[in-house]
Simulated assay, not measured.
Amino acid sequence: MEEQRLPVGQPFVESPRMTCRNVGVYYDGKSAIRHVNIDVGRNEVLAMIGPSGCGKTTFLRCLNRMNDTVAGCRVEGSILLDGMDIYGKSVDVVPLRARIGMVFQKPNPFPKSIYDNVAYGPRIHGLTTSAAELDEVVENSLRRAGLWEEVKDRLQQPGTGLSGGQQQRLCIARAIAVSPEVILMDEPCSALDPIATAKIEELIAELREQFSIVIVTHAMQQASRVSQRTAYFHLGDLMEVGATTRIFTNPRHKLTEDYITGRFG
C-alpha cells in the first residue's frame, strides 16, 4: 500500500468518535477516492464540500458500509468507530447501521404510517419491551426532529403524505429512534425549499449536542452555517480540512480557495 498522504490543515481531533486512515475506494478496479485521512469528532458537525464527482458521497457511504451494496466496490484502509474496525469480519452491518444512521438526499419514508416509520428500527433491534415504551420512543424521536406538533394527531396516516420537508424530518426521526452515535447526511436539503431547509439546519444544530454528524453539501453557505469543521474534496482526494471559519476565510490550499471563491465547481 502506498504511503499515507495527509490533507492540509487539521484532519485529526482529540478523542474522535470515528477514525479514518488511508481510506481508498475502487469501483471495478478504478480508483474513486484515495488516501483519505480524517477524524469525526464527538458532538461536531463535519461538512464535506467539493465539486460534483469529487468523492464526497463515496466517502460518506464508507462510514456505514453502504458501499457494500455496490457490486464491484472495494474499500481499503481503516475506519474505526469508538476503536472498533467497522470492516472487521465479525461486524454485523445491521446493528452497525443503527449506530451510524443515514439520511439521504431525497426523503425516503417507508410506505408505512408516520408512527411505524419511526417505530421500525426500535422494533427490529429489540430496543423496547412494551407498547408504552415504544410510544415514548416514537414521541421523543419526533420531538427531537421538530415534527411532533405537526403530526401528533395523524400518526397512523402514511408518512409519504407529508410535505418534502416534513418527510425529511421524519427520516431524521427514524434515524435517531435507534439512538445512533453518528448521523450521516447526504445533501439532506437539496430537494427542499428555503423554509424547510432552515428547519433542517436548525435541527442539525440541536442534534449536534447528542450526536456526531457528517454532512455532504453542495451549498457552501450551508456548510458555513451548520458545521464546526469542513473538509474539501477534489477529484477523489481530500485536499484540506480545518475549522469551518478558517476554511472559508483563509483556506491554505489553492484548490480550496478557487472552489470557495467560485473560480470552478
Rank of each mutant, 00 (worst) to 15 (best):
K199N: 13
P7S: 04
F233M: 10
R74A: 14
K199A: 13
D68A: 10
K152N: 14
P7V: 01
R246P: 02
S31K: 15
E3H: 10
W148G: 11
G262F: 00
P180G: 08
P111A: 09
L80E: 10
A119Y: 00
F211S: 02
T245W: 05
P188A: 09
L155W: 03
W148E: 08
A243G: 12
P51T: 03
S130T: 14
R99Q: 14
S15M: 12
M84R: 15
Y232G: 06
T249S: 14
A119D: 00
F12A: 09
V103Y: 03
S78W: 00
T57F: 04
I213W: 00
G55H: 10
M48S: 01
G121I: 04
P51W: 02
I33G: 13
V216M: 09
L6W: 12
G146F: 02
A177D: 10
V13H: 03
V226D: 06
A173V: 13
M185L: 08
L235N: 12
C189F: 11
I79K: 05
T217C: 05
E44D: 03
M66A: 08
T230N: 02
P122D: 12
I195F: 07
V8Y: 08
K199H: 14
A177G: 12
N140K: 15
T249Y: 01
I172K: 08
G24P: 11
L162K: 05
L96W: 06
Q222H: 06
E2F: 04
P95Y: 07
K89F: 00
D68I: 03
M84T: 15
G24S: 15
R65C: 03
C171K: 07
K56M: 06
M18V: 02
D193F: 07
E3P: 09
H253G: 01
T58R: 14
D68G: 03
R144V: 06
S190I: 14
V103A: 08
V75F: 02
A205F: 02
S190K: 11
S163A: 02
V182L: 05
G164A: 05
C189Q: 09
A196N: 13
Y232D: 04
V138E: 03
L170H: 05
T249C: 02
E187G: 10
F110D: 07
Y120E: 12
R144P: 09
T58P: 14
G236A: 09
T128M: 05
P51A: 11
E187I: 10
L238R: 07
D92S: 14
M66P: 04
P109F: 05
R21V: 01
I200A: 09
Y232I: 12
R123A: 07
G146D: 02
H125T: 05
D186P: 01
G146A: 08
T261F: 01
T58E: 10
G83T: 11
S227N: 11
C54G: 12
V8M: 09
V137F: 12
E133A: 15
F110A: 06
E139Q: 15
L203Y: 06
V137D: 11
K106G: 01
S179Q: 15
L96A: 07
L96Q: 07
A145M: 10
T230I: 00
G165I: 03
A177L: 13
R246N: 13
E181D: 07
S227H: 05
I49G: 09
V103W: 01
